[in-house]
Design a protein around this nucleic acid. Structure first.
Length: 828
RNA sequence: GCCCCGGUGGCGGAAUGGUAGACGCGUCGGACUUAAAAUCCGAUAGGGCUCAAACUCUGUGCCGGUUCAAGUCCGGCUCGGGGCACCA
């Protein structure tokens, strides 16, 4: 018999074109079905797909296909996070037009994605760099501005002195400029911020609602938001009437132990607080600090430094005077920018006090060991000493008592503090969405009227300009009229952080061509929230937190009804090659095109799901691809070699009428359906799903190996097994299963069909193996009827020859019987 | 430093407290072939005793505990990975 060989390239090419022509993945609102929105993090169009993309999109695609076969109306869209630095660098380095560069990459990568066989409704494709998209990014900015959620203030940015340019956080690697290795400095510029801190508490509290998120990610967000409880305490400055320094502390109980006070180098009142004798030293220290910040980050042993200002605070609790110092271990943008120093009970203050010979005053004792020497800061709970009327209190109680005392006397109050800072969205960059505001000399900051959106990116810019946004070099862009008073005015030349674009893309897919609004309420009401989000763990904090913030903000503006965007989250691990991270510099990357060419996308999909659970790192090996290619061929042969025996409209006789082998095969089929369905539903455990594919395939091969000829019953049972297998593998190997469905005479696409159901009564074998143990050690394995009663099972085990021999001369204390599993006989 | 997660054959990894190592990769042996590729069959944690089988002991990073029964639960270490990092 002439064997029909498996040629993946031909099949995949043919199928892909058919799917695209027929738009088989087109999806619309359909209220007759439950909806399911599966989303994968959209790629940056860097040039070529990498294996991380392949893994990400295969996972989401298999979920999408599985859900569609289970009767859901499934949306699985795709788009491009297409603003960003690489495009701009291409412009700087070889004069490319960022837009052309980006759109060319999109074109190429889109084909690569289509070759992967993902079921995407490409009519909903979006690209964040196109005006019909960024118009709405700008529109959202304006809504935030109107609500007071977007504001401008002076802020520190990373600055490369050699390139004379601002660096994004990601461009500062180990404290150095990514391009020239100069030490990055801090510089102060007026920048746009979004007030994410207004949402700190809700972002924290609502983490509890996200039961479908990995605990790890929720914990990372929780730490990032960093809520703490403490107090603001205000200290009068002895030398300056009316000037107070407020500090934030989580340890008001240690207030009697203050021996000095520290302000950050950028503290606003620092000039007032510095005496003329100290002016020079303080000035020098502050200059150094601005330069040293990043260098210091490099050192593991952070040496604390500081200089005194010459002024003093008065502690209102005991009227003691203490020096005020400037030290860079105080952070200007956390708390009040000033810290009360209690060396006896804070490790940092202790180290500083030792270095500069400051007084260390103990105010909390360990009740179990009150005379222990203070070799290091004592930070454990204890009892207050040397603390006036609070002496003798437990320190936890004293926190409250001292805060209340301060509040009553007007020099303090309780305070909840977050580590989360407002989100700096200004970028002095070209390839981003322009911030839609106008600076008018008379009216100040004026938002661009909504009807004038989008504010288009100009083409006439100089990319090589240093130290400011390239937009500022455009003669046509900057000069404009004030929309309020009509006077000559200038446009804002900063663009928005690309995270602002990726904040809301998953809503645009829902109504991608709407030119009246960002998306319709009808579309978001139907599709939101995202049921399953799939993407890399590297976005655990920033993107996922910004997107949550965005959703809450537009929820409060009445734009959507949901206040959490992503119901379930799957964070997939990295793709490694032979144990180490794939990277161009190591030369160990794998090109998806090459895999498509040599093995086909089906094999690539199968392999990338097969060896590791989705959440773990995955090691790509050449041997592994080969192994999966063999299995795909084995599957192909199983179907194609038996096509003569397959009955498309097979009928399955009652289980009681089946021959023993057929009975067995029917049961094995139900077992396969059950375990595969459960493994996908539980945790998207595709690695075990693929193991089951192999087991079930082996079962059918074994069945056939024992048959020379097939009678009618055999053919019907075999057809049942084969069609079920075909449905089960369809989400993972979509091209091959579609081709085989046609070869075997299916009238409609296997992907449009339904997911097989299982019968719990049939999803088990008629006889099972049970272990007989003595004191927990296995002594025998016995074959029993699956329906055997507990009593019968116990009797059978006790009657086993091996068990009887072992029980000789011993006394049975008790017998534990677990039906279907084991019998354990406890003896002494 | 603080927080989190892991440690199972040569490798990737399976295992609702109930047969540890499913499934695969690799390796070894065999069949088919003039030969090779492909394919198919078998073996594959370690040790003891055996010609062989049967049998038996030890094994999930280390030490201890709970339990009839522990890779799984609890306590204490240790090694590896990740997140945050002077947050007062």
């Amino acid at each position: 018999m002439e064997e029909e060989k498996y040629f993946p390239k031909e099949i995949e090419e043919k199928r892909r074109k058919l799917w695209e022509e027929k738009k088989v993945n087109k999806v619309e609102i359909d209220r007759t079905k439950p909806k399911y929105y599966v989303l994968s993090m959209l790629p940056y169009p860097s040039g070529k797909l990498h294996m991380g993309h392949v893994r990400n999109y295969t996972i989401s695609d298999v979920i999408a296909r599985f859900k569609r076969m289970n009767g859901y109306n499934v949306l699985h869209p795709m788009g491009w996070d297409s603003f960003g630095l690489p495009a701009e660098n291409a412009a700087i380095q070889h004069g490319a037009d960022p837009e052309t560069w980006t759109l060319d990459n999109i074109k190429y990568m889109k084909l690569q994605l289509q070759k992967l066989g993902i079921m995407v409704d490409w009519d909903r494709e979006i690209a964040s760099c196109l005006p019909d998209y960024y118009k709405w990014t700008q529109w959202f900015f304006l809504q935030f501005f109107k609500k007071g959620l977007a504001y401008k203030k002076e802020a520190a940015v990373n600055w490369c002195p050699k390139c004379a340019t601002v660096l994004a956080n990601e461009q500062v690697i180990d404290g150095k400029c990514w391009r020239c290795d100069s030490i990055a400095e801090k510089k102060y510029l007026s920048q746009w911020f979004l007030k994410i801190t207004d949402y700190a508490d809700r972002l924290l509290q609502d983490l509890d609602k996200l039961t479908g998120w990995p605990d790890r990610v929720k914990l990372m967000q929780k730490n990032w938001i960093g809520k703490s409880h403490g107090a603001i305490l205000k200290f009068k400055v002895k030398e300056i009437d009316g000037l107070e320094i407020p500090v934030y502390t989580t340890r008001p109980d240690t207030v009697f132990g203050i021996t000095y006070l520290v302000v950050a180098p950028e503290y606003k009142d620092i000039d007032k607080l510095t005496t003329p004798e100290n002016k020079e030293a303080v000035q020098k220290y502050r200059e150094n600090a601005s330069r040293m910040t990043e260098i210091e980050r490099l050192s593991t042993e952070r040496v604390k430094t500081g200089v005194p200002l010459g002024t003093h605070i008065i502690n209102p609790f005991n009227n003691e005077e203490s020096e005020i110092w400037v030290a860079d271990y105080a952070l200007v943008d956390y708390g009040t920018g000033a810290v009360m120093a209690v060396p006896a009970h804070d490790e940092r203050d202790f180290a500083f006090a030792k270095k500069y010979d400051r007084k260390i005053k103990r105010v909390i004792d360990n009740p179990e060991n009150p005379d222990a020497p203070l070799d290091e800061a004592y930070v454990e709970p204890g009892v207050l000493v040397n603390s006036g009327e609070f002496t003798g209190m437990k320190n936890e109680d004293a926190k409250k008592a001292i805060t209340e005392y301060a509040e009553k006397n007007g020099f303090g109050k309780a305070k909840t503090q977050f580590r989360l800072r407002d989100w700096l969205i200004s970028r002095q960059r070209y390839w981003g969405a322009p911030i839609p505001v106008i600076n008018c000399p008379k009216c100040g900051i004026v938002p661009v009227p909504e009807e004038d959106l989008p504010v288009l990116l100009p083409k006439d810019v100089d990319f090589s300009v240093k130290g400011k946004s390239p937009l500022s070099t455009s003669p046509t862009f900057v000069k404009t009229k004030c929309p309020v008073c009509g006077a000559d005015a200038e446009r804002e030349t900063d663009t928005m952080d690309t995270f602002m674009c990726s904040n809301w893309y998953y809503y645009r897919y829902l109504d991608a061509h709407n030119d009246k609004e960002a998306f319709s309420k009808e579309a978001t009401d139907y599709w939101s929230p995202v049921d399953q989000y799939v993407g890399g763990i590297e976005h655990a904090i920033l993107h996922l937190l910004y997107a949550r913030f965005f959703t809450k903000a537009i929820h409060d503006l009445g734009i959507t009804g949901v206040d959490e965007p992503f119901k379930n989250l799957l964070t997939q691990g990295m793709v490694l090659k032979d144990g180490s991270k794939m990277s161009k510099s190591k030369g160990n990357t794998v090109d998806p095109d090459e895999i498509y060419e040599n093995y086909g996308a089906d094999t690539a999909r199968l392999f990338i799901l097969s060896d590791s659970p989705p959440g773990r790192d995955f090691d790509w090996t050449d041997a592994g691809v080969e192994g999966c290619y063999k299995f795909v061929n084995r599957l192909w042969r199983l179907f194609v070699q038996n096509k003569e025996n397959v009955i498309a409209d097979y009928k399955l006789p009652d289980i009681k009428e089946l021959s023993p082998e057929n009975n067995n095969l029917v049961r094995q089929t139900h077992i396969a359906v059950k375990s595969i369905t459960q493994d996908i539903n539980a945790e998207f455990q595709f690695n075990t799903v693929i193991s089951r594919y192999r087991e079930f395939t082996n079962t059918i091969y074994d069945y056939l190996a024992k048959k020379n000829t097939l009678n009618e019953q055999d053919k019907n049972v075999l057809s049942f097994a084969l069609f079920t297998l075909l449905q089960l593998v369809a989400p993972v190997v979509p091209y091959m299963s579609e081709e085989i469905g046609e070869i075997l005479g299916l009238k409609e696409s296997v992907h449009a069909g339904t997911w097989p159901k299982y019968d719990d009564n049939l999803a088990k074998m008629s006889s099972i193996t049970v272990v007989a143990q003595i004191n927990g050690k296995i002594k025998d394995k016995i074959e029993v009827d699956a329906e055997i009663s507990k009593e019968e099972l116990e009797k059978t085990a006790l009657n086993s020859e091996k068990i009887k021999a072992q029980l000789e001369g011993k006394q049975v204390v008790k017998v534990i019987t677990v039906p279907g599993k084991l019998v354990n006989i406890v003896v002494k």
